[in-house]
Structure formats: structure tokens, C-alpha cells
């Protein structure tokens, strides 16, 4: 499974921008070799690790922050950062939960139970709206990305807590007579044996990869992340690009929120706490530069799988969860170290 997911994400980017230099191959190869090493070591340590069933389970875990990481990649390519993704994930889940409980229109004295597809669309739109707030704050009001998204992170989390009074929506399965069943489809169903959440991740990765490598918007994104002033003077609508990027990150957070609450068949206001950091870690391990302009979807997916397979592997062989934190941290630092070595010696040499 790990192989198919790796090739799937790589098909997303193999049609990538222009030439295929050795340098880029090495850069992304690093995360790839790390993934192979992790799989090899844990397969050796535990007989249960190297099974199709386990890979599918692990991949469905990766799906959540893999989706977040795609949004984070877009933001980081733009030279920004989005700390609010974990909170938007939770708030989206809560909003979806509230919609599933029915919307009471008191003036008409009726309770509307929207079908699941409508809940999904509304929730994604809402996530995009919150993301757009980030974007407008950053692009038009020149609030630093770190501060703007930090603020939205708190506000979104607070609103989620207020809406539920700190409690969790548990009864998301809907009722047949109301016509809103099927909530668990995202989280539990499988297509040809593959969890839907993994397919969603793959589809989003491929879409984003194509967008980055083949669309004008992708080129604008790389350019304005690499040098905003030069992009601006070349006629790139840098502000619009910035707002779209944060909006997309918001939508992707909402999708991740839907997948998570579907997997849990419950939506809690404290879901996804610190997920923004995991997403940033995946992007960084995948070789993207925090200064903007460098990075690929393929790398980010590898980064997400490295983190996911590592922490699940540690659970399987029975290592304390405290050690997982230590290992994850070490991997992140190592990745950034190698990134800076790679980028540092680059400009002049070739």
C-alpha cells in the first residue's frame, strides 16, 4: 500500500514543472528513502506491521493530516504559514455536527434536516470562508501570517467550544426517515478495499499537483512565494494569489474535519489540536522551504507518510507514546537540517 500511495502521489507530480534535475530527485529521494527505512525497520520488529490491512489502517490515519498538509504546502509555498488549520478542522466538524442535528427555523416552526451532501458542501464553504478571512487579513491588512492565523486559530477554537458548550456531537449517523444517513461513508467505507479517506487524499494530492505544475495559478504561487516583488512587477496578482491560497487551506481543513468526524462518528470542539504543527512538519520533511517558493505535493505526501508510519509503527511495537513525540521531533529537526544544507549550497554551485 505504501508503494501504491507513493506512486500515486508521484504520478500527481511526475508531469511536474519542466526539467527533472538530479538535485530535485535527491531532495525528494531523501524523504522517500526515510519512508522505506521506516517500513523496513518496523516490518523487522513486528510481524503485524508489513500487512496490507495494517498499511490501509495507517494510510487512513495519514489521510487526516495529509489533507491538512496539502493546504499547508500551498500556504508555505506562498511564503506564509497557517496555524489555524487544526482549529478550522474542529470548527468545521462541529458545524457539520450541528447541521446533522437539524437546523431549527423558529419563524416557520420547522426543523430542516439537510442531506449529507449538502452538509459537506456547506461545511467546505464555511472552511473556505474562515480561510478567506486569514487571506484578507494577510493580503490587504498586511497582518503577518503568523499573527493573523494565530488569532483565527484561537477564535475558531473558541467558537467551536461555544457552539457545543464544550461537549461532543455523538449521534451523527442520522435517521433513515429524515433522509440524512450516510455520514460514516467517508470514514468507514471502502472502494476496492481502499478506505474512502485515502482515496480522498489521493484525489486531492493529484488535483493539487496538477494545479501547481500545469496551471497559471500554480506558476503564480511559486513566483510570488519565491520573490513577491518580482512577481508583482511581472503582473502576477500577488494579493489575489495570497487570498486564494489561504481560502484553499481553509477548505482542505474543512474536508479533513469531515473525514475525521466521519471516522469517529462524532464531532468534538477539541479535535485536531496541534494538527497544524504536524501538517507543517510533513511539509518541511517533504523538502519545502519555509521561506517560500520551493516544495512539491509529492514531497509533502512523503513527509506525511513518514510521520504517520513512524508514529503508528512505534505504537505497534509497543513503544511509549512519549517516545513517539521525541522521535517525531528528531525527524523534523533532521529534515530541516538537510533542507538547509541542500538549499544553502545551491544558489552558487550550479
Amino acid at each position: 500500500m505504501s508503494d501504491t500511495s507513493a506512486t500515486r502521489t508521484s504520478t500527481a507530480k511526475s508531469a511536474s514543472s519542466g526539467g527533472f534535475s538530479i538535485g530535485r530527485l535527491l531532495l525528494e529521494g531523501r524523504a522517500f528513502f526515510a519512508l522505506i527505512a521506516i517500513i523496513a525497520v518496523f516490518s523487522f520488529l513486528s510481524p503485524n506491521y508489513f500487512t496490507v490491512g495494517n498499511f490501509l489502517i495507517m494510510a487512513s490515519h495519514v489521510a487526516i493530516f495529509g489533507i491538512l498538509a496539502i493546504g499547508m504546502l500551498l500556504v508555505i509555498l506562498n511564503g506564509g504559514i497557517d496555524l489555524s488549520v487544526g482549529s478550522i478542522l474542529a470548527l468545521s466538524g462541529v458545524i457539520a455536527g450541528a447541521l446533522m442535528q437539524g437546523v431549527e427555523l423558529s419563524t416557520f416552526g420547522v426543523i430542516l434536516y439537510p442531506p449529507v451532501w449538502a452538509v459537506v458542501v456547506l461545511t467546505c464553504a464555511f472552511g473556505g470562508f474562515v480561510g478567506a478571512i486569514n487571506g484578507v487579513l494577510i493580503a490587504w491588512f498586511r497582518v503577518p501570517a503568523f499573527v493573523a492565523t494565530l488569532g483565527v486559530m484561537y477564535v475558531a477554537r473558541g467558537v467551536a467550544l461555544l457552539m457545543t458548550n464544550g461537549l461532543t456531537y455523538n449521534n451523527l449517523s442520522g435517521r433513515p426517515e429524515l433522509g440524512n444517513t450516510g455520514w460514516d461513508w467517508l470514514g468507514f467505507n471502502r472502494l476496492a478495499g481502499v478506505p474512502i479517506s485515502v482515496l480522498v487524499l489521493a484525489a486531492l494530492a493529484i488535483l493539487t499537483g496538477v494545479m501547481l505544475s500545469r496551471s497559471a495559478f500554480g506558476r503564480w504561487l511559486y513566483a510570488s512565494g519565491g520573490n513577491e516583488r518580482a512577481a508583482d512587477l511581472s503582473g502576477v496578482p500577488v494579493k489575489r494569489v495570497q487570498i486564494i491560497v489561504y481560502t484553499l487551506s481553509g477548505v482542505l481543513s474543512a474536508i479533513a474535519g469531515l473525514v475525521l468526524s466521519s471516522q469517529l462518528t462524532s464531532a468534538g470542539p477539541t479535535a485536531g489540536t496541534t494538527y497544524e504543527l504536524t501538517a507543517i512538519a510533513a511539509v518541511v520533511i517533504g523538502g519545502a522551504a519555509l521561506t517560500g517558493g520551493r516544495g512539491t505535493v509529492r514531497g509533502t505526501m512523503l513527509g506525511a507518510f513518514v510521520i504517520g508510519f513512524l508514529s503508528d509503527g512505534l505504537v505497534i511495537i509497543g513503544v511509549s507514546s512519549y517516545w513517539q513525540t521525541v522521535f517525531t521531533g528528531a525527524v523534523i529537526v533532521l529534515a530541516v537540517l538537510m533542507n538547509s544544507i541542500q538549499y544553502g549550497g545551491r544558489g552558487r554551485k550550479n
Binding site: G226, R229, G293
Partner: peptide, 13 residues
């Protein structure tokens, strides 16, 4: 350097 080129992109881009 500051206003003309995007250093992270290729000559063609």
C-alpha cells in the same frame, strides 16, 4: 535581484 528575478525558479520560468 530584488525586483526582477525569482531565484527559486528556472531561467525558462
Amino acid at each position: 535581484q530584488r525586483d526582477g528575478l525569482v531565484q527559486t525558479m528556472t531561467v525558462g520560468q
